[in-house]
Nucleic acid binder design. Sequence first.
DNA 1: GCCGCGGAGGCACAATTGTGCAGATTGCCG
DNA 2: CGGCAATCTGCACAATTGTGCCTCCGCGGC
Lengths: 314, 314
Amino acid sequence: MVHEFSDAGETRLITRVCWAYYREGLTQEQIADRLDLSRKRVIQLLARGRSNGIVHISVSGPEGLSPELEQALCERYGLQASIVTPAPLEGGDIRELVGAALGDFLSNHLRNGERIGLGWGGTIHAATRSLRQGSLRDLSVVQLLGGLTQRARFNPFDNLSRFASALGADCNYLPAPMLADTVEQKDIFSESPQIAEVMRLTESLDVTVLTAIDMSERSGALEYGVITKEEWQSLKRANVVGDICGHYLDQDGRQVDHSVARRTLRSPFQTLQNVDRRILAAGGIHKAEIVRAALRAKMCNFLITDEALAKHLL
Amino acid sequence: MVHEFSDAGETRLITRVCWAYYREGLTQEQIADRLDLSRKRVIQLLARGRSNGIVHISVSGPEGLSPELEQALCERYGLQASIVTPAPLEGGDIRELVGAALGDFLSNHLRNGERIGLGWGGTIHAATRSLRQGSLRDLSVVQLLGGLTQRARFNPFDNLSRFASALGADCNYLPAPMLADTVEQKDIFSESPQIAEVMRLTESLDVTVLTAIDMSERSGALEYGVITKEEWQSLKRANVVGDICGHYLDQDGRQVDHSVARRTLRSPFQTLQNVDRRILAAGGIHKAEIVRAALRAKMCNFLITDEALAKHLL
DNA sequence: GCCGCGGAGGCACAATTGTGCAGATTGCCG
DNA sequence: CGGCAATCTGCACAATTGTGCCTCCGCGGC
């Protein structure tokens, strides 16, 4: 975490080693000999190459991963495309898998010069590790909702910076808390020139990458202290099933007017709806309700999810 | 080679296994247990997934593989882009490496619905193994020059069919010999409706994938019996340094009028020049002269090559 | 100068992967 | 029905890869 940006020579070496290993098919030992490195170091360089996107491994059949489910989701909910990752054979973190699929998808889907709005969460965090380096130029990334104060495991700021650095994109932070203490405070933030400027950027996005927060006990909202237990209970009483980038929805996809919602600093609903390509990535059955709500509200036209959730939605 | 197209269930299983291995990170043994397969079979399925593009491994730094050389080539020869693969650490077949880079590049570069003209040779053969499956739709591939009669290792027909099946593209064969016995014979072929129709297709290509044949002793032209030893000598005397898809050039990139050239059945020079994106993939210093000639003639605006040849060109 | 810290190399061992071989099974053909 | 060929399985072994541990070295603080 300390030297996020290692020097260029290092990157060079990683590329060379990864090429020799994955393309030329040499063994680690051969590479170590030829390049005069220890085998240990070769292993380490390979690992780094994999984790920062110099090496990119994608898996996809001719018609996608789970053709029927993908097809069915598209038809049922009027999506432009969807990706359904196979159910994990072994426990494993679903966010890793869905995130990997998201990263893959974005690597192929984005075009030079596009502006991307970014949500936050474990899924996006995982996606950064699957973004392919190179190829794309002049991207910029914009934060869609405020940050968290404490150093949580997944912080929108951290999310954004990793994502941007993986793509070599410009970074537009929204330097404000996700949830203000009062509506008045939120308004003060919103009206500050810096924040208003970033908000304006969200009016000309090419793509959004959205994430869903659910209201279950294991919800990230509680886990990372976005909201208090009391707020959580209050939201549940108001029939909220979760939120998409700070927009709280009931099970039919209607926005719920609630104190928490009014105090949340994020790009407005209409602005998000106007974006051409809206990608929602979420996995795990505990997110079924909120994802269904998002689909009903047409908040996304691309869905990336896992087999279990896909089946629940159909 | 027998069951080129294995049944869909097989493909399905491969995808599943590859996903579990490369994405979930399970060991082969775990996968064998969960899916009730022998470990041997898992290994085999993984290998098949890699070789037919279900699994795709790409290696590329943030600015490409050899940024300086790539940059320099673009400037010197007015290319839109170029890719230079690192020099192999160990012997190894250069065509495999350049071909892999070509496959990679095409996987990212092609767009839905495009029509691709295809040359032939070991490089293209290798590229088919690096084409990523899925993502692309409604492509079609057109053969740019005639085929060979004997079952050589790399036959344009074989090349084309592998390439097309890897991309799920339509296939347009040019059912005629690459080199006719006489000019009259060639004309008869050219005028036959079937062949004329395919030739017409080459007038509306979006992309061409060209290959260079050199005139050295180890040239593919001799190796695969395209031309006889006598013709080879005669071409050399006429200052021919090689050919690009049946167009024989001297070292300055001028077309050479020679009996062999006149008898070769291929898409005309002007037609090829009119194509928007013209990709030439060739590696190895023995191809330096013909590649330089091709660059001078502006036959390509994308070049994929290896480090050794790139340095020779600069 | 001394100490502690962090990174890199070397070594050894464990896990994983690749491959060859004998034997069983399947399906096809005569 | 028997034989044959192709394929799969289980097993064993070799190669490759991953990891922990110890040591050495350089560096900065005290």
